[in-house]
Design a protein around this nucleic acid. Sequence first.
DNA 1: CGACCTGTTGAACTCCGTCAAGGCGTGTGG
DNA 2: CCACACGCCTTGACGGAGTTCAACAGGTCG
Lengths: 247, 247
Amino acid sequence: MAQRKSSNCSLHLVNTDRNCDACDLPKKCIGDGLDKDQSESISKLIKSRGPFQAGENIFRMEDPFKSIFAIQSGSVKLESSLDDGTPLIHGFYFDCELIGIEAIGDTRYQNDAVALETTWICELPFDQVESLCIEIPKLQHEILELLGKRIRYTNSTIVRGRYLSADKRFLLFLNDLYQRKGKINANGDRVVMLPMTKGDIAIHLGLRPESLSRALSKLQEEGVIRNRAREIQILGETQDAFSCLWI
Amino acid sequence: MAQRKSSNCSLHLVNTDRNCDACDLPKKCIGDGLDKDQSESISKLIKSRGPFQAGENIFRMEDPFKSIFAIQSGSVKLESSLDDGTPLIHGFYFDCELIGIEAIGDTRYQNDAVALETTWICELPFDQVESLCIEIPKLQHEILELLGKRIRYTNSTIVRGRYLSADKRFLLFLNDLYQRKGKINANGDRVVMLPMTKGDIAIHLGLRPESLSRALSKLQEEGVIRNRAREIQILGETQDAFSCLWI
DNA sequence: CGACCTGTTGAACTCCGTCAAGGCGTGTGG
DNA sequence: CCACACGCCTTGACGGAGTTCAACAGGTCG
């Protein structure tokens, strides 16, 4: 499970530090491993924002891109829509992850960022981050790394998921979610809490809500998961549940 | 059509400079708009590689990530495979576009880069690019912009494409290809040459070759395209062909 | 020439989307 | 407190788009 003393809790790191909720120093979300002066330079840039209530926008598509945002606590979905209004959900992001980076190099954000629950955010004005990168090569490297990770993340989820059936697609999603957000509860069960609706998950996976619902029922019948309202429990050995993904 | 005097021919720019084949200065692919000294600094990093023949690898998944590559001429596909061997094609890249950037921040490349025809490449050792970014903030900005564009490109093609039928998915692909590589031939026809097989296109679109073939036949019947062996001709007004994508 | 690769076409099947109905939990108002 | 509405999820039946399997056409290259 999560290594609580992980030295890095940046986006999509598998063993993210779950203590981040409690971490008073936002620097842990970015710029970790820097010396004191450098960390302070970053801290000076940060503007704390929140709380955002469920359904509130952190930024909108139309907004000019100025900042990237580190989620301090809570969870966020990035959504947009096709020209005919069909909703798209590009991803779900949790504490110690960065959003807004997909707009880097553009004038506007590409999607709406909507809080899924009460959420606190750190705003990082990107032009200042860029300037600081010149002074702190390590920070430049970290930002480049984050962007690279985001590209790879899309490739390993969306691109890969296209070739999978509905239930495997969900398992791929669940596997990722478990790595980032999974917990072992009081009974020793491996569970993932879902701050988003199943409808949102369906959209994100490119499925209809009915199709996802059927996939979940099927996986429950097969004894792979237990499908609760806002929680998925992973039955058997974790590697069993996800084994079909790595045949 | 292509603006031949375009000041920028970096990845996914809509009006890419088609003269790049003939451009003797690789700097046009990256670091454009820099002063003479800065351009020279970049030129010093570049190692020219090639020619790669069709089917030859420019890099492989297992290779340690050291460099990004600018395509000087020719075309390249990025491919990997699922654990069961199912092939995935992440994209096709042409002259003046960058490959390998999806590995930034990782130790290895994420996919194989395979030449589709005789191809010349400029290799840019990435640690040196990173160092140079510290000295040339404009270059840092350009690299960040390129990475951001790559994320957005995936969102606007793969993610969007998931919600489209086979024929519309192909039209979305064709529209992109026409922007990047389209030409008007001697007869005044709008055509796109295809360096890749239709099988490769199908894989890239998440379809079976048979399904793509049927979609192409259907689009030809409807008078939208003319489906040739290694060339697609766009019939009617260009906006007609692609209008269904922007309803 | 025949082997091979690529692309096309046909027929049967499968999975997911669509439409429709209903269940469940929550919140609101009488 | 119950009635009701509402959002979210589930289930069923049906249809359609894409897959699968198979056969074959056309081009290229030995």
